[in-house]
């Protein structure tokens, strides 16, 4: 079957999709967006967390056909997503960060062209905080954690530790013991708070 969706602001179309395929498979193997990770395929690890019409979900448990016509945000689009959000929040004050033509900006091309390594695009606050706090080791859980944490901070800019733990309780990490991940989310919240 054919599936159409908007991912990270760009329209995509996938053909010859087997009906049993998940959104995760389509993203990774058909749309060239392997950032979302496949670690369990049963909704027990959160590594494939994406935003589906704004809601964090395990992409491995969304049938490809269910994503038809939906808006998906993956880790690859997180920086843009955060930038647009902060643009919206600060829109009245500082209009028009020159987004047009910027690599990775939605709408500039209909053909997906992943940012090449070496091109330095600004990171979302939560991405930068994960690097700075040492929350990344093997990094396999990182994309899912980032999408989840970013959504938490969108909903709750000043979460308590218990709130962070609850929000991230569906994202397994095997390397870090989570301490530095907590640090990272606290750091991202603090930085975002300062910036506002």
């Amino acid at each position: 079957m054919r599936v159409n969706m908007t991912v990270n602001g760009r329209p995509y179309e996938a053909d010859d999709v087997w009906e049993g395929e998940s959104l995760l498979y389509v993203l990774r193997e058909r749309l060239g967006l392997p950032g979302s990770k496949n670690a369990c395929e049963q909704g027990e690890c959160g590594s494939c967390t994406v935003r589906l019409d704004g809601v964090p979900v395990c992409a491995c448990l969304v049938a490809a056909g269910q994503a038809e016509g939906s808006e998906v945000v993956t880790v690859e689009g997180l920086a843009d997503h955060a930038r647009q959000r902060s643009g919206e929040a600060a829109g009245a004050v500082c209009p028009g960060e020159p987004e047009e033509g910027h690599p990775g900006t939605p709408g500039t091309t209909r053909h997906p062209e992943p940012t090449r390594p070496g091109q330095v695009a600004p990171l979302a606050p939560v991405q930068q905080a994960f690097i700075d706090a040492g929350a990344v080791q093997c990094g396999f859980c990182t994309p899912g954690l980032l999408v989840t944490a970013d959504e938490l901070l969108e909903r709750n800019p000043d979460p308590s530790d218990a709130d962070i733990r609850e929000a991230l309780s569906g994202n397994l990490c095997r390397c870090t013991g989570y301490e530095k991940i907590l640090d990272a989310v606290r750091l991202a919240a603090a930085r975002t708070g300062e910036a506002v």
Binding site: L33, P34, G35, S36, K37, T74, V75, E76, L78, A79, P114, T115, P117, V120, A121, L123, Q127, Q128, F130, I131, V136, G139, F140, T142, P143, L146
Partner: peptide, 11 residues
């Protein structure tokens, strides 16, 4: 780190 937080790191 940057590759890993942007999803570009190729596993």
């Amino acid at each position: 780190g940057t590759l890993k937080v942007t999803g570009e790191f190729a596993y």
